[in-house]
């Protein structure tokens, strides 16, 4: 399989830990220069797939092609060079607690370039401004809300102008307004870095509808759909419909079991005490 530009392609990808299989025989291509969303329920292997692309997990079988190169077949030095083209937003931002926001954002530049301190600091504050956090540059991560930490994580991911931006659940745990801001940010990133391939792991359907050019749906570690959001929305597949409309099949609904009378009585006693 060959890919062009900054396409990401999975070829018969399988991964597991011990006897537990997380990903099974995934074959798909995430198009270059677009926002691709990896969608699926909790524990279906979305984040694991993302960590495969970053190279934090090695697949048991199959290949990942990034920019036309087999990621796990590259010599170490070239593999490191390849990874420099990737910016990653981790679930909670993964900002270094000992550094301020500006120092966190500046990290790729301060570690890999010989630019003067003031130039790097200005670049960090400018990038923070892109995510609306310029005035929080001297704050530490623990002084900020979850949404702000995610935006700062996004700033750190984009400061080195990556060719591939990978975001792990950028809107999870955020209120609807902050989540919408994050969606807008991702769209503005796409406008700003026209050739950048963006991969977003999510199960937030509103977000997917707003940002996705391409959707890959996982279920129990297998790819069950790949295509545009429009074709996903018109799919007749019962699982996809459940996902889209937030419903469950009757047989999957758990029956409300009667509470053990002893437990009920104990709780009543405790409440009355």
């Amino acid at each position: 399989m060959h890919t062009a530009s900054w396409e990401i392609a999975f070829e018969n990808l399988s991964l597991g830990y011990g006897e537990r299989t997380i990903l099974r025989d995934i074959t798909a291509t995430l198009p270059a220069g677009k926002i691709s969303v990896i969608l699926g329920g909790s524990g279906c292997g979305k984040s694991t797939l993302l960590k495969n692309i970053i190279g934090l997990h090695r697949p048991q079988q199959g290949k990942i092609w990034v920019g036309g190169k087999d990621l796990f077949d590259l010599p170490r030095a070239e593999y490191r060079r390849m990874r420099r083209h990737m910016g990653v937003l981790f679930q909670d931002g993964a900002l270094l607690g000992a550094l301020t926001l500006a120092q966190n954002v500046a990290l790729p530049l301060s570690e890999h370039t010989s630019l003067p301190k003031e130039v790097i600091r200005k670049a960090a504050f400018d990038t923070l401004a892109q995510v609306g956090l310029r005035e929080f540059g001297d704050y530490y991560p623990n002084e900020l809300s979850g949404g702000m930490r995610k935006r700062a994580g996004l700033a750190r991911a984009i400061i080195a102008s990556p060719s591939i931006l990978l975001c792990d659940e950028p809107t999870s745990g955020l209120d609807p307004i902050t989540a919408a801001k994050m969606d807008n940010l991702l769209l503005s990133m796409k406008a700003h870095f026209a050739d950048m391939t963006t991969v977003v792991v999510s199960h937030d359907m509103q977000s997917v509808k707003k940002i996705a050019d391409y959707v890959l749906v996982l279920r129990d570690g297998q790819a069950v759909f790949a295509g545009s959001y429009q074709s996903l929305a018109t799919s007749n597949d019962p699982y996809l419909q459940q996902f889209l409309h937030r419903t469950v099949e009757d047989e999957e609904q758990r029956r409300h079991e009667e509470q053990d009378p002893r437990v009920h009585a104990a709780i009543q006693d405790w409440l009355a005490s």
Binding site: R83, M86, V88, F90, D92, A94, G97, P108
Partner: peptide
């Protein structure tokens, strides 16, 4: 400190940034 960095993905973030 290093343990907290590990469980909160900070060490992965360093590796991903080629640090």
């Amino acid at each position: 400190e290093i343990g907290v960095m590990r469980i909160s993905d900070q060490i992965d973030a360093l590796d991903v940034m080629d640090i």
